[in-house]
Design a protein around this nucleic acid. Structure first.
Length: 392
RNA sequence: UGGAUUGUAGCUUAAUCGGCAAAGCGUCGCACUGUGGAUGCGAAGAAUGCGAGUUCGAAUCUCGUCAAUUCAC
């Protein structure tokens, strides 16, 4: 038996909709996974994620939870589900990306990465083995291999070296992962019908903007064999056209019978574009990060609640949004909260943004089922641009 | 009523011997893509309380005036 089950229900072009079953929840795809780095989706209570927002899976983060409170504490407390009270699915990032994006001092070797904690400056070490051990302690449904993520504009030779290292690390990740599963070290083990009850492991394809290297990385990753396949190393500084080009080339070549996960992406437009190229899963900090700093995503594009023009605007963030924030609060009130430094501003805008992202995914899935996704895409993107400044 | 001290951007303060009036906060706007309640970038904003004088040149020196603070009566 497999740890996850993946069924495609409908397809239109490369876009597909299906159901991903894990030991803890049914997840309709395409899916957007809110990011809950430190055992919390910042500013959003689990109650909301479970009810109105109806998120079926969220992210947790090996790097951050490894540093605080530490894997052993979470293991003692029974794993991340029990610790946080989130009982639906979790996907944990491996820490590979964070070691490169969050720390200044680090030493990369074949063995792993030595780095200084951004929390207290102490010396730490992460490797494929350590990452798998931490993720087993966290007990997530989907574990990510420990990878190296080079800059988006990395040159050919650097990218090749990096993806080769990532492939060797992927192999080691899988070996240690299997040992831990066999040893019962996964705190999240759960009996489920037709499933093994174990964690699933996803591989990550690297290769920056070089298509032949993407292909090479894909081959190496598929050869090792994983429950799902992720596309890493996009939206890390490269041109947007590069991302779409890589997706156009890569996604359709990825195994059809496994979910495809585009890591760290993106804007609503990015999600639609990626889905039309065959991607099934996404995560991104934008809805909650921008929400905290006054940025709202709406069906008519982005808006910044700090703008003076909203001071007396009694309309909701998005007149078409059915979320509880838009049903109740005005832009004028949200702006007031933001300008006065009230934490509720960040909470409410984050909530709306997640509602908008998750609702957009629902509408995408419905349109694929009905066979009118391409029409939906065109209308959606046109509408998003309505309020964008001219010439963009 | 008299004396002392102080008046510089919305606020708090800089500006060597008299030599291009700056900064922080706030305001206004932009950025943010496997998290960053962070941060970065950009803009607007001043007859240096007001009026004279000295000087090539005054926020700075002199006189007057107004205001605030404070002490004395």
């Amino acid at each position: 038996m497999k740890p996850i089950e993946w069924t495609v229900n409908a397809q239109e072009g490369n876009a597909r909709t299906g159901i991903l079953r894990t030991r803890r929840s049914e997840i309709e795809t395409p899916v957007f996974m809110p990011v809950g780095t430190q055992a919390t989706v910042k500013g959003v209570r689990y109650e909301w994620l479970e009810t109105e927002l109806d998120a079926r899976i969220i992210l947790g983060n090996t790097y951050h939870l490894f540093l605080r409170p530490g894997a052993e504490i979470i293991r003692e407390l029974g794993g991340l589900h029990k610790f946080s009270t989130w009982s639906r699915s979790l996907l944990t990032d491996s820490g590979g990306f964070q070691v490169f994006s969050l720390t200044d001092l680090r030493k990369l070797t074949e063995e792993g990465v030595e780095f200084r904690s951004h929390v207290d400056g102490s010396k730490k070490f992460l490797s494929p083995e350590v990452s798998m051990e931490v993720q087993a302690a966290l007990g997530s449904e989907i574990v990510m291999v420990f990878d190296e993520c080079p800059p988006g504009d990395a040159g050919y030779d650097q990218t090749r070296k990096s993806l080769e290292l990532t492939a060797r690390w992927a192999k080691r990740s899988k070996e240690r992962f299997n040992e831990l599963q066999d040893a019962g070290m996964d705190t999240g083990f759960l009996e489920a019908e037709n499933l093994s009850g174990r964690q699933a492991l996803f591989g990550i394809v690297q290769g920056a903007g070089h298509l032949d290297l993407r292909r090479e990385s894909l081959d190496k990753t598929v050869e090792i064999g994983f429950d799902g396949y992720a596309i890493g190393g996009l939206s890390v500084g490269e041109e947007k056209s590069v991302m779409y080009e890589v997706l156009e080339f890569l996604a359709p070549q990825m195994p059809e019978n496994a979910p495809r996960y585009l890591m760290g992406v993106g804007t609503p437009e990015d999600l639609i574009e990626a889905i039309s190229r065959g991607v099934d899963m996404f995560d991104c900090v934008l809805p909650t990060r921008n929400g905290r700093t006054g940025g709202a995503f709406t069906s008519r594009g982005k808006l910044n609640i700090r703008n003076a023009k909203f001071a007396a605007d009694f309309e909701p963030l998005d007149a078409e949004c059915p979320c509880s924030v838009c049903r109740r609060y005005s832009k004028a009130y949200l702006r007031h909260l933001y300008q006065t430094g009230e934490m509720l501003a960040a909470i409410l805008i984050s909530h709306h943004n997640l509602a908008f992202f998750l609702d957009t995914m629902r509408r995408v899935r419905d349109s694929i089922k009905l066979g009118n996704f391409s029409r939906f895409k065109k209308d959606f993107l046109e509408k998003m641009r309505e309020n964008e400044p001219a010439g963009v």
